[in-house]
Amino acid sequence: MSVSKEEVKHIAVLSKLQLTDQELEKYTSDLSNIVDFANELSNVDVDGTKPTAHILDIKNVFRKDEVQPSYDREEILKNAPSKDAGCVSVPKVVE
């Protein structure tokens, strides 16, 4: 396996996903297969080749610093699963 179970566990944590043991097996094998496949890129000679920064030849796309009205708070919070006092509410954040 080119991707280990430990690595899959680690990236699941970074992705905030929980995996059952069965899923861990399955994803480890799936990711290994895909990564093996992607490893064909290591055969390509990329010395001196610049990574594509942008697909279009664009630069300096700016916006003027002019205020436009914001949205109604009701709209902003419309889809929130839990709200209180004009805010989205979440379980206590502990620092």
Partner: peptide, 11 residues
């Protein structure tokens, strides 16, 4: 992976 893929993309 990511950087190399963007290089191959250039090619």
């Amino acid at each position: 992976y990511y950087k190399r893929a963007q290089q191959v993309r250039t090619l």
